[in-house]
Design a protein around this nucleic acid. Structure first.
Lengths: 147, 147
DNA sequence: AGGGTTGTGAGAGCGATTCTCAGTCTCGTT
DNA sequence: AACGAGACTGAGAATCGCTCTCACAACCCT
C-alpha cells in the first residue's frame, strides 16, 4: 500500500482510535506527526525529548496507539523501545540496524525476494502449527559513523 | 558450519574465553551445557531457574560469554532477554516466535533462499554505507497452544 | 447544565538487569 | 610449597526503562 498523505493519515488514525473507543487528542496527534516526520523508528527517549508531552502520557498514548493498530513497537537492540507507524499506514519495509549505536533506517528489498520469502514462510508456518505468521527481516551491521 | 559435538564445543568455548583473558569455570560450563541441551533460546528466567548459579553470576557470566563470542543475546518479545549459542558454534538458523507467549523455536529455510537473501543484503549494505551486515529473519505468529 | 466517560500529569511502584564489594579461587612464578 | 596478581563468586544495593495510581481536567451526549 502506498504511503498515505498527511490528511488521510490523520483521518485514518482518528477512525482507528474511534474503533477502540478512544479519542484523537492533540497529544496523540503530535505523536503520530513526530513518527511521520521521522520516517524511521524513534526510540521512546527521542519521543519524550521531542516535546510531545510528559513521559507517562507518552508511554500511555503509545500503548493506546499500538492497541488501535496505528503504531508498531520495533524490536531493535539497545536500551529503549522504538516505535514506527504501522505498516499499512506506510509501506512494507525492513530495518537496517546499527549494532553499535542502535540507529535504525528503513530499507526495502526487491519485490520478488519478498514474494519468495513469503512463500517459504507460509510453508514453514503450516508445517510448525503456527498461525498468522508474518516475517521480520532485519539487516544488522555497523553504520558509517560507527565504523 | 556443522553443529559441533560436545567435546569440541567445550574446547572451542574454552579457547575463546582464554582469548579475552577469561577462564572456563564450572559455572560457565553449566551455562553452555544448558544452552546446548535446550537447542532453542532460553530466557534469563529459565536459565536462572535451571540451577546454574545465583542470579547475579548468571547475568555476569552470560555477559562474559557474549563478549567472548560464545553466546548471543536474542531479541524476542516478552519481559526476559534470551540467549543461545553463537551461530558459528551451531548452524545458521532463524526463529519462529510466538507473539503471545514468547516461546522461540529454531527453524531453517531453504539454502537457495538463504543465498538469494544474502545477495540482496550485500547489495543494500553496500549502497547504504553499512559494514559487516548480517541478516536476521524471524517469523512471528501464534503458536498452537496460544491459538 | 449534568453525568458519565476518557484523557492528563506527577509521582510512586515495579521488575529485569547491572553494579558493588568483600571474600575466594587459580595459576604462573619463585 | 608459598606467594601474589588477577579472575571469579554471591548477596544485596542500585539503576533505569517502563507501568500504575490517582486526583483533576476535558470531552461528549442528552
Amino acid at each position: 500500500m502506498m504511503r498515505l498523505v498527511a490528511r488521510d493519515l490523520h483521518a485514518t488514525v482518528a477512525e482507528r482510535l474511534r474503533g477502540v473507543g478512544q479519542r484523537y487528542t492533540p497529544q496523540r496527534e503530535a505523536l503520530v506527526a513526530a513518527l511521520e516526520r521521522a520516517r524511521t523508528p524513534l526510540s521512546t527517549a527521542e519521543i519524550v525529548r521531542s516535546r510531545t508531552g510528559p513521559q507517562s502520557s507518552v508511554y500511555r498514548n503509545l500503548a493506546v496507539l499500538e492497541h488501535a493498530g496505528v503504531v508498531r513497537r520495533v524490536i531493535a537492540e539497545g536500551e529503549f523501545a522504538r516505535y514506527e507507524l504501522a505498516e499499512d499506514l506506510t509501506e512494507h519495509h525492513h530495518h537496517l540496524i546499527c549494532s553499535n549505536c542502535g540507529r535504525v533506517q528503513d530499507v526495502t528489498i526487491p519485490p520478488d525476494l519478498e514474494t519468495t520469502m513469503d512463500r517459504a514462510v507460509d510453508r514453514l508456518a503450516k508445517r510448525s502449527g503456527f498461525a498468522k505468521v508474518r516475517h521480520r527481516l532485519d539487516l544488522i551491521g555497523t553504520c558509517r559513523s560507527c565504523a
